[in-house]
Design a protein around this nucleic acid. Structure first.
Lengths: 337, 337
DNA sequence: TTGTAGGCGTTATCAG
DNA sequence: CTGATAACGCCTACAA
């Protein structure tokens, strides 16, 4: 700890210049083997520890990126986080992680601190794709990529999914099963454009199938198990309750299943539920959850890939909407009667 | 992006010295209001952006810590990660996150890169508490704290739980219910001392209850849903199969429940299962999972707290074993017959 | 292949 | 209260 030795110490000890030491670290092939060994030896002797900060300071490359997500508690974000981490790791880049808890202020703050920390770029799952934060990033040409949002054009690079289509397909599945009274439990639109787009898909599907939209069947709530449970109970207490629910994520859906069960209903006989995400546990609950699968890991991985390209100089914005798929399992069936 | 302005630019523009600019940033009260305003104004004019890296470079404080966990996929680690992040955030410290995937080599590598990045300290959920990595950290007096392990003395600061006791209580619950043939599905001991200690608790409990230990009833496997499912199926195919299982974490337990179900068994009538962790979903599955609760968030939070104390100079090692509690839910009952 | 020397953006020490 | 100026550890022309 105390006094760390620097390349100067090593240089002295090896009887060479600091430039040479620096070379054996960064481009060993550019120095004679003999000298190299001498230096390596010296490094051991004085227990030299490389200081990546000092390097970043001069090269203006921190080899660090910032990853901003709503909350690491949600398995989807944990999965995309893993995707970026794995990819970054393979490229010797470290990642600073920050949770916004769906609060714009927090997103703002994180972006600022990460920038002060001189991150080479940012990967963001935003709370508001039209907010000033992202706009500034674009204006100042900070390399960054947006995750999960449905943005098919414009100056931002984004790796997302077609949330509208996802919402549409989930609802369509229910309609095809024969449901006409379909409720939706959604994450609050104000903090999740993803949820908002999924709702649009839901509405459009109803419309296309000539099912009138009843706003009483929509509840916006926290993206949590309890949120899902409470919402479903409320909706089920209506005079003319839904026979099926589309939940805008799997947490909500799992919570909804619990709520239905507490009401004594049995899935999928008495009620159908479809989620969104396909988190791993979705296929391990009983009944197994029908849901829309997002390729979360790949979203993270591809996001990191594109970010590095951008950092590498490619400034042309890219919009990649990855495929969603409907995974039919056991939580959905036709309505009784 | 291009050319960032520095305090020198600001200084010139405001007609003061860099020292003064630095002062308005770090101790504004130490500079006359008039000058301060002048400087603030100038900062805006040239769009000055603070460079935290440069600061760290001179102060030798990066205000960054490294957090090393097995995998962010496991909700327990996601939860403790949140604990440290929240606490760090409140203290304006950023956290670098790394997954070891239970590989010691990876742990080694992460520690090294994080140290090169000049982190102020490390928080580690280790794969091997007796390995050289931690030993070196101790020797070189690098501030760090260990999470989740059962280490009640020695030079390391650790925030853990009594995994032995946890294993004991889980097993005891089963024994009291009347089970005599109790299997264990455990994470591999070679990569998790936690699992190893839980198994010891399990054995001790059997012994104290005069139930002979049958090593055929133990399976070590990956900490995953599939691992749990496959293990249970194998164990259940024995000539004299267990009537109950203790799984060393909730993932394993959830997987085990699935496996049992695929075999046509109904819980808790045909089989009892108890897990370990109490991840959130544990109380949302059917049947709800009986498990041992670990205060994951608090472990992370307290870990960060102790780390900061240590960074602050308190070098006395601290060992905090947090309370575990048995949460009895629906996945356990007495054996039939 | 190796050395010299200047600079990166900020803080800290000392004077004034 | 403010200003000069020397670090901090490393990289990178440029020269030798």
């Amino acid at each position: 700890m105390d006094i760390m030795s620097t390349i100067l110490d090593v240089a002295k000890l090896a009887g060479v210049s600091t430039a040479t030491v620096s070379r054996v670290i960064n481009s060993p092939e550019a120095v004679r083997e003999e000298t190299r060994d001498k230096v390596t030896e010296a490094m051991k002797l004085c227990k030299y520890k490389y200081n990546a900060l000092a390097r970043g300071f001069v090269t203006k490359q921190s080899n660090t990126i910032g990853l901003i997500i709503p909350t690491i508690n949600n398995p989807v974000f944990a999965e995309s986080t893993r995707g970026v981490q794995d990819y970054a790791d393979r490229n010797n880049i470290q990642v600073l992680l920050g949770n916004t808890y769906y609060q714009y202020k927090q997103e703002e703050k994180l972006v600022e601190t990460f920038r002060e920390k001189q991150v080479d770029g940012l990967i963001i799952t935003t709370t508001n794709p039209r907010g000033a934060v992202l706009k500034t990033l674009v204006d100042e040409e900070i390399p960054f990529v947006l995750l999960y949002s449905t943005v098919k054009k414009g100056p931002m690079t984004v790796v997302g999914v077609d949330n509208f289509r996802g919402g549409y397909r989930a609802t369509e599945h229910l309609v095809k099963l024969g449901h006409r009274r379909i409720g939706m439990v959604a994450g609050r639109f104000s903090i999740s454009d993803r949820s908002f787009h999924r709702w649009h898909g839901y509405r459009q599907c109803l419309k296309n199938n000539k099912i009138s939209y009843d706003k009483a069947l929509l509840i916006q709530t926290d993206y949590s198990l309890t949120g899902g449970r409470d919402a479903v109970k409320k909706l089920l207490s209506l005079k003319d309750p839904p026979t099926a629910f589309f939940c805008s994520n799997d947490f909500l859906a799992l919570g909804a299943m619990k709520g239905a069960r507490e009401l004594g209903l049995q899935l999928p006989r008495d009620l159908s539920i479809v989620g969104f995400d396909d988190i791993r546990i979705a296929s391990y609950v009983i009944p197994e959850l029908t849901t829309i699968r997002q390729p979360a890991y790949d979203i993270g991985k591809l996001g990191a890939d594109l970010l590095f390209q951008r950092i590498g100089g490619c400034m042309k914005p890219v919009h990649r909407m990855l495929d969603l798929s409907l995974i039919v399992r056991e939580s959905t069936a036709g309505p009784v009667g």
